[in-house]
Amino acid sequence: MLISNMEILPGKEVKTHLGLVQGSSVRAKHVGRDIMAGLKNIFGGELKGYTELLQESRDEAMARMKQQAESIGANAILNVRFSTSSVAQGAAEIYVYGSAVILE
């Protein structure tokens, strides 16, 4: 499965457009990470735990999007976009969407 955030692929042609596919994942951080983050809020600097957490949930959202694309028979997802929103205190939603296509 080819995933790209461009619309055009040089040398390849889009045979069929299959519409939008999407995946999302809402994750909350666990208490241990929260305490560490609280400390970091005093000293400043990178919050490694959160970086990993968001990376994981982004991977999961992408996996869901891929699954959806596979189920409708696509072999590539083009023009992929990411979006993040904090839905509640301590939880973040990662949303990823793109257009599923069949490349020849």
Binding site: I3, S4, L9, A37, N41, G45, E46, L47, T51
Partner: peptide, 17 residues
């Protein structure tokens, strides 16, 4: 001709007190 692959990098960073 190029192969394409999505790449990304993220950072969470906080200010100090």
């Amino acid at each position: 001709l190029f192969d394409q692959h999505l790449v990304m990098g993220n950072t969470v960073i906080s200010v100090d007190y």
